[in-house]
């Protein structure tokens, strides 16, 4: 199994530790991971802002870099969703179709392809899961509170097995954090309010750490937590799953 690792642009530049944790975790699980060096971004920042046509070059660059792998894994539900859902703007060559069909968000890949639950991690904290929307309602990485389905959650499945972690329940299980790409800036007032409300829900229910499948949501929440000096740590799920037992 040859796995190509996609590290989203903002993780590459601002949160390299998330990329490192992802690669180390996958290697620990005996996966052969390659990080193609010509990668940049999935194209989402332009597309969600209404400039899909400016993202064509980015999409092509993505496909060029990842067409040769059995699976593409990324620590971002949002990017995986974008490739799956919106890469219909470029001609649907075999390479494009393959890339769209084989891209996986990290937890999804662990639970459904590798079929592992316990990755041997230890993380002795009370953790609140922020269910990032594109992963949740786009990729269906878990049951959604709006729908009448059996409850499940890939990130929850993995986190449950982590030694010492106590998952806290939230009052609003899967409300959006308000990041939303350029929304965070163009609708600043609401974006900030949504983020503050999410954080308060975690605090009210005793979380020490907030985790998620997406660093973009976490960057927004961390920005607020830091500014308001709130007693919370922000960790991407890859970082928790890579906290090896000492």
């Amino acid at each position: 199994m040859k796995v190509g690792l996609f590290i989203p642009c903002y993780i590459n530049q601002l949160y390299p530790q998330v990329g490192k944790a992802t690669i180390e975790l996958l290697e620990r699980l005996q996966v052969e991971v390659i990080y193609p060096s010509g990668q940049t971004c999935c194209g989402q920042p332009m597309a969600n802002s209404g400039y899909e046509y400016e993202s064509v070059g980015t999409c092509n660059n993505f496909v060029e870099n990842f067409k040769g792998f059995d699976y593409i894994v990324t620590p971002s539900g949002s990017c995986a969703y974008h490739v799956k859902k919106h890469y219909d703007i470029i001609p649907q060559t075999d390479a494009v179709t393959k890339v769209r069909n084989t891209i996986y968000e990290l937890c999804d890949f662990l639970v459904n392809v590798l079929e592992v639950k316990n990755v041997g991690a230890r993380f002795p904290y009370k953790v609140g899961i922020h269910k990032s929307c594109h992963g949740l309602r786009g990729l269906r990485l878990g049951s959604c509170s709006e729908k009448v389905t059996e409850p499940y959650s890939h990130i929850g499945t993995l986190l449950k097995e982590v030694l010492g972690t106590e998952i806290i329940e939230l009052s609003r299980k899967d409300e959006c954090c308000g990041f939303g790409g350029t929304f965070a800036v163009t609708e600043e007032a609401i974006s900030v309010k949504m983020g503050k409300d999410r954080i308060q829900d975690h605090l009210n229910n005793g979380a020490e750490v907030i985790t998620a499948t997406d660093t973009s949501c976490l960057m927004h929440l961390e920005g607020l937590v830091t500014r308001n000096k709130q007693p919370l740590k922000i960790r991407h799920i890859a970082e928790i799953l890579n906290s090896v037992v000492d």
């Binding site: 390299p16 990329g19 983020g195």
Partner: peptide
């Protein structure tokens, strides 16, 4: 920087993931 009105930006890391990987 509208982002920074009520939110901090992350502290820029010295090396990108790309550089670390290389």
């Amino acid at each position: 920087n509208v982002w920074g009105k009520e939110r901090d930006l992350p502290l820029g890391p010295t090396e990108s993931f790309d550089e670390w990987y290389k």
